[in-house]
Design a protein around this nucleic acid. Structure first.
Lengths: 227, 227
DNA sequence: CTCCTTACATACCGATCGGTATGTGATATG
DNA sequence: CATATCACATACCGATCGGTATGTAAGGAG
């Protein structure tokens, strides 16, 4: 179709340096939103949610406040989008492993390993997500923000529950020693979450990363292994 | 001396509900500073450093901005005082145990247990201190703030080094299995630091607290124990 | 071509921020 | 008594915040 051809050209044009104004394709709009969320994630990582201004994100994005508010209603909703994306990544990575037919210890090992890789690969998102959890748990939010955060925390709990289930599976099957699964789970997540604080993606080299990952996996597996 | 007697009376008056104005005793000044730092710690815990305004602290303290700025030059210095106090508590608790003649595993167990108790006991300070570490590591600070934070991080490292030394002692003595002490240390601290995020002092009852503490200690000890 | 919508950019708003300048009442000093 | 100082309280400042109102250029529809 002629329309399709024209659309194809418009799409390519919109994906180049300067996107065209006026009516855009859904894909181009999606791309614009994606870029904003990416810039927001990086800004939130650097400054924290509270200390990040919309202007900071504009600077990162090399765009204006008008553009951001054209796509997102508020700073909170932008943070929501970042956190949402992080949970998509997390759940998308963990669910297949959790549902695989492997043994509990194999699954736990694969999950922690993959989770650490995902954190490194999507570092700004994961940093922002951790901040979201902190904000929610410490309860320092406006009612509007809290409403938005609540939805995210539901998915977060789903994510955390995956680890807990595997721990409990391992205890039932006798692979793991007897532990308080709730405490073990929170401690495990503490190790992973704190990783987003001290790890510096731009410093560490690839081989060091593998060492770090295997070291943390080792730490966690040992904490639930039988003596 | 007559002077001493008068001073004694003034001190008592200053420690009551409404402190007297005009010239105050050093002890009373110290008490005023202590109350400000306490209020600041609670505010920083609730809202985070960036999102906490001096007015928030005033509200918590039921005082005015004038009073706070009479005792502290800036918000950063106030945060510094909170973090400093937290490190006093931490080092004051850990050093004696670390230097005791006990075995590495006894020391590690005692240190984590005591650290968790200290976190619960001085919760606002510990939450603020964790935020300080995050702020520093993520590097989102003004040059002035960074200068102040740097001094704190030195003490923080001293604190963290205590755990690391014990881990290495345990490996040398054969009490612990062979691990990457740096990774194990950071993971251990992750468990402790994340505890300040998910633990809610006002909810948990005393007996539950003991269960939580022993659960976390168990998790950590197992992670370094020999199979 | 005109007209409308989209996708921004620009200019601006009230609120709030950290910080300061100044006023005020109590007390120590001489 | 006068005077100085301390310990605040009050009033205020420029800067910056999240958010909005409006202008404008680029398409698509007819």
């Amino acid at each position: 179709m002629a329309t399709a051809t024209r659309r194809g050209k418009t799409l390519k044009a919109s994906l180049s340096e300067k996107p065209s104004q006026g009516q855009m394709l859904p894909e181009a709009v999606e791309e614009a939103r994606r870029r904003i969320v990416q810039a927001a994630a990086e800004a939130f990582m650097k400054n924290g949610y509270g200390a990040t201004s919309i202007n900071d994100i504009c600077l990162q994005l090399k765009a204006t406040k008008g553009m951001i508010y054209h796509h997102f209603d508020s700073k909170a909703e932008l943070f929501f989008a970042v956190h949402q994306r992080a949970m998509d990544i997390n759940l998308g990575g963990m669910v297949p492993i959790a549902r695989s037919g492997q043994s509990a210890s194999e699954r736990l090992k694969a999950m922690t390993e993959e989770q650490l890789r995902l954190i490194i690969l999507h570092f700004p998102y994961m940093c922002a997500a951790r901040q979201g959890v902190e904000l929610y748990l410490l309860g320092s939010t406006t009612p509007a923000e809290r409403l938005i955060l609540r939805r995210l925390i539901v998915r977060r709990r789903e994510f955390e529950q995956l680890f807990r289930s595997v721990i409990e599976d391992g205890m039932r099957s006798g692979e793991f020693r007897s532990v308080d699964s709730d405490i073990a789970n929170k401690s495990l997540l503490g190790v992973l979450n704190w990783f987003t604080v001290w790890f510096q993606p731009q410093r560490e080299k690839a081989q060091d990363r593998d060492k770090i990952i295997s070291g943390i996996v080792d730490f966690i597996m040992s904490s639930v292994a039988k003596r």
